[in-house]
Computed example of a mutant assay.
Amino acid sequence: MDHQSLGSSRLSSIFKPWKGQATWIARYWALYGGWWELIKSPYAQSSVVFGALCSICATPAFDPAATTISVVPNVLGFTVGALAIILAFSSADFFRYLTQKGKSDSLFMKTIANFVHFILIQIGALLLSIFSSAHSGIIWKFATVTMLTYAVLTTLSIVIQLFQMATVYNMSTKATSVKDGDDSEKIDER
């Protein structure tokens, strides 16, 4: 093996893990819905408006980078923990309803993709705030406030997704209890 092909082989082995990461990110992005889903997201749109308003109306002392660095790590830890819990219980019976018999775009996979999106937005907000803390100007303030706001608002998106999962679970137990002859629906739910 000559020196040039040895160097090429080493270089290729350095980038091989990145190729694998890019493949998984592309899968997540496709499941999330891509750029169109991001553009039409009411959470993203609200974040841009809020970021613009804060950038224009904020006092000079307002430091969105410091706010982000103090808020987002706690939310990020909670989010990763919630995702781990969902994955830990994914073998439970009711998850078979969520996976829709292994469908690649099942409610389960969409929920996981939304969690991944939520985590990536939080990481992006943190990285942007670190960079922004070294720079000044209205553009950096706008970008940081927008990302922080989007990171916070996607919490609502995840909560709604979890509510969908709970609704599916509730319907699956109802279907199972009716099939098994359970009379629990007769209970007054006042």
Rank of each mutant, 00 (worst) to 15 (best):
Y28I: 10
W29K: 05
W29F: 11
W29Q: 03
W29C: 02
A30I: 03
L31P: 00
G34V: 00
W36C: 00
W36D: 01
E37I: 03
E37M: 13
L38A: 12
P42L: 07
P42H: 10
A44K: 10
Q45A: 13
Q45P: 03
S47T: 13
V48D: 05
V48K: 07
V48E: 05
V49N: 07
V49P: 02
F50I: 15
F50L: 13
F50P: 01
A52K: 03
L53Q: 10
L53R: 06
L53N: 13
C54H: 08
C54A: 15
S55P: 00
I56Y: 13
I56R: 08
I56N: 02
I56G: 01
C57N: 09
C57M: 08
C57F: 14
A58H: 10
T59E: 09
F62Q: 12
F62K: 10
F62H: 12
D63I: 11
P64G: 10
P64W: 04
A65H: 10
A66G: 12
A66Y: 12
A66L: 15
T67D: 13
T68Q: 04
T68C: 11
T68I: 06
I69E: 13
I69P: 00
I69C: 14
S70R: 14
S70Q: 12
S70K: 14
S70G: 14
S70P: 04
V72M: 03
V72L: 04
V72K: 02
